[in-house]
């Protein structure tokens, strides 16, 4: 479904990614792991067309997409759940969700989808009219995922969904990620928490200093000594 071929990107003279290649097959959860500053978020932003490539190619559903604008990626069904709390703080929860469907014109279906995403996150329904800035950290993370779902993604890019959340909330969020995948959504998951990411994913890549250091089936990586030492603290 998605393939990055030897992509490089940087900020000014600093190289953030050099020659990264990865593949996400339809229906799978693929994890992209690595330490802070390894280039995980940059990779997602390259796919979302927010950060420009210096070389390499990105293909989505068989078409080359690395020259497209960011809104074209959303229109094609690649929606990102950004890291941190990138909500529209002064808008209501409802408006935050509706704006996730910004590029869609099917008003009736959008209304159904509003109900559908609230089934995943019943708490958002209770906060519908509230300003999004008043939500708790966990609720904001739910709102971000729900907002991305409103774009009817085929591929969901998740950036550090566990960041800053309590273990209980992390469990909840990942249960929903599993459920979404079971319902057919393809997911590229960026995480620092390697344990939980390897647990939900089918396949994983590990980034070190902007390059892929390891890749393999998640079940195998969990048992890999180098991975265990560096990322699982065992």
């Amino acid at each position: 479904m998605l393939e990055l071929k030897d992509i490089s990107a940087g900020y000014g003279r600093i190289n953030a990614l050099s020659g990264v290649g990865l593949k996400v097959d339809a229906g799978r959860v693929v994890a992209l792991l690595g330490a802070n500053g390894a280039g995980k978020t940059t990779t997602l932003n390259c796919i979302s067309r927010v950060v420009a490539l210096t070389s390499g190619e990105i293909h989505f559903e068989g078409q080359r997409v690395d020259r497209l604008a960011s809104e074209d990626m959303v229109a094609r069904g690649v929606c990102q759940v950004p890291e941190g709390r990138e909500i529209f703080a002064r808008m209501s929860v409802r408006e935050n969700l509706e704006i996730g469907a910004h590029l869609r014109r099917d008003t009736a279906v959008i209304r159904q989808d509003l109900d559908r995403v609230c089934e995943y996150f019943p708490r958002l329904r209770q906060r519908f009219a509230q300003e999004a800035g008043t939500l708790s950290g966990g609720e904001q993370q739910m709102l971000l995922i729900a907002r991305a779902l409103m774009g009817r993604p085929k591929l969901l890019l998740l950036d550090e969904p566990s960041l800053g959340l309590s273990p209980l909330l992390v469990e909840q969020i990942f249960a929903i990620i599993r459920q979404l995948n079971k319902e057919g959504l393809t997911i590229l998951l960026v995480e620092q928490n390697a344990r939980i990411a390897l647990n939900v994913s089918d396949y994983a890549y590990i980034l070190e200093n902007g390059e892929i250091a390891f890749e393999g089936n998640s079940a195998d990586l969990v048992r890999d000594d180098r991975v265990r030492q560096a990322y699982l603290g065992a």
């Binding site: 979302s48 927010v50 960011s70 809104e71 959303v74 229109a75 929606c79 990102q80 950004p82 990138e86 909500i87 529209f88 703080a89 002064r90 808008m91 704006i99 996730g100 910004h102 590029l103 907002r147 991305a148 774009g151």
Partner: peptide
């Protein structure tokens, strides 16, 4: 309004 509040998030919703 979205662009005024959070341009980064605005880009990501298209």
């Amino acid at each position: 309004r979205a662009v005024g509040m959070n341009p980064k998030a605005a880009v990501l919703v298209g």
